[in-house]
């Protein structure tokens, strides 16, 4: 992977509390799995940065190598990889996602 790609990813995930690497945008997801994660975050009222991998081939490939995870979407909270669609949905259903965000000091509308 190009070092500048890794640097861009590092900058994104450290300068934003919550980052979602996805296909499409939060308003217009282009894939059901990305839409599912965006819906969870929207529903919780969490502010996040969406990175559309479809408009950037270097990031699309780079994030897979960076995370060692072969699929999109990928959710990062405070610089740490949380998971893809299955994991985020499971954690939301069990309440672990809400707990993780609270522990990390990320506010969501549900708590406010």
């Amino acid at each position: 992977m190009d070092e500048t790609v890794a640097e861009r990813i590092k900058t994104d995930i450290t300068s934003n509390d919550v980052v979602l690497y996805m296909k499409g945008t939060p308003a217009f997801p282009q894939c059901g799995f990305s839409a599912a994660v965006a819906n969870v975050l929207n529903h919780m009222g969490v502010e996040y940065k969406g990175v559309d991998v479809l408009v950037d081939a270097a990031i699309r490939q780079g994030i897979k190598e960076f995370t060692n995870w072969p699929t999109i979407p990928q959710l990062y909270v405070k610089g740490e990889f949380v998971g893809g669609c299955d994991i985020v949905r499971e954690m939301y259903t069990s309440g672990e996602l809400q707990q993780l965000l609270a522990e990390k000091g990320v506010t969501s509308a549900a708590q406010a």
Binding site: F33, W69, P70, F81, G83, I87
Partner: peptide, 27 residues
């Protein structure tokens, strides 16, 4: 962890994922 479990499955199926499979919903 959940992430470690799924990484393990992805590694086992890496050839299939790179050849044809576009999406793998995992539990």
């Amino acid at each position: 962890s959940r992430v470690a479990r799924q990484r393990l499955v992805y590694e086992i199926l890496s050839a299939e994922l790179s050849e044809r499979i576009h999406a793998l919903a995992l539990r």
